[in-house]
Structure formats: structure tokens, C-alpha cells
């Protein structure tokens, strides 16, 4: 079963953490990536802050162009910061992996994947 581990949190908090705490967080992510990598293919995405986004809203009428707005889709307390996607044995297994990157500054959503395709990397 494929699951996505979606990460939500308050923007900017990570940057304000002391170096040591940032390291703690990153080591959790590194451990998860190593573990997933050893088991097979996985996707890991860290997004830039939502304010860097541009939103494409649907065209008001069919004969018009979509509306482009210079800003994120929604101003919310918690933002979508990134996600993992991989094959897991079952829900328990996915939750166990999500626990590896749990921290006081993030809420994790483990959601089943309906369809996945493509291969991307910034490396």
C-alpha cells in the first residue's frame, strides 16, 4: 500500500530554532530517507515557503484566462511544508515511519495514495 506522509506546520519556526534543534530534526529526516531508500523507491519533497508561491485561480468564465495571483493559495495558520511518498507494508508501518520525523513544530498526515507517477530530483 502506498502512503503519503504530509507535513504541515507553522512557517518560519524551523529557521528560528537553535542550531542543535535544527540538527535533531534533520537527523530524523535523514534516518527516514535512508530507511526508505534501502527498501525501494520513494519521493521526498521539501517545499519553499508558501509566500514564494503564485496561485492560478480558475477562469471566471470559460472565455477568459485563468487568474494568476501573486501569493499562496490560502493564508492559514499551518502550511503544507512537504511530503514523503513510499510503499509501506500497511498503515501501522506507515505510521511507524511517520513517527521518525514527528516534532513539536509539525503535524503529520498519513494519507493513502490513489495514484502516483513520475520521477523527480533536485540533486
Amino acid at each position: 500500500m502506498m502512503y503519503a506522509i504530509n507535513i504541515y506546520g507553522e512557517v518560519g519556526v524551523f529557521d528560528n530554532l537553535p542550531q542543535a534543534r535544527q540538527e535533531d530534526l534533520m537527523s530524523g529526516h535523514r534516518a527516514l530517507q535512508e530507511k526508505l531508500g534501502a527498501r525501494g523507491d520513494y519521493v521526498s519533497v521539501k517545499l519553499m515557503p508558501p509566500s514564494a508561491a503564485v496561485t492560478v485561480n480558475p477562469a471566471p468564465t470559460p472565455d477568459q484566462d485563468p487568474l494568476i495571483v501573486d501569493g499562496p493559495f490560502a493564508e492559514t495558520k499551518e502550511s503544507f511544508l512537504g511530503f514523503y511518498a513510499a510503499e509501506f507494508d500497511d498503515l501501522e508501518d506507515a505510521l511507524a515511519h511517520a513517527r521518525m520525523i514527528s516534532s513539536p513544530i509539525a503535524r503529520l498526515e498519513v494519507r493513502p495514495i490513489d495514484w502516483a507517477g513520475g520521477v523527480i530530483s533536485t540533486q
Partner: peptide, 10 residues
């Protein structure tokens, strides 16, 4: 405390 203070700073 570290986590909370990071949130306050933001």
C-alpha cells in the same frame, strides 16, 4: 522551551 521560543520569534 526551544520549540516554543522559535514559534514566538516567528
Amino acid at each position: 522551551t526551544d520549540w516554543l521560543e522559535a514559534s514566538f520569534a516567528a
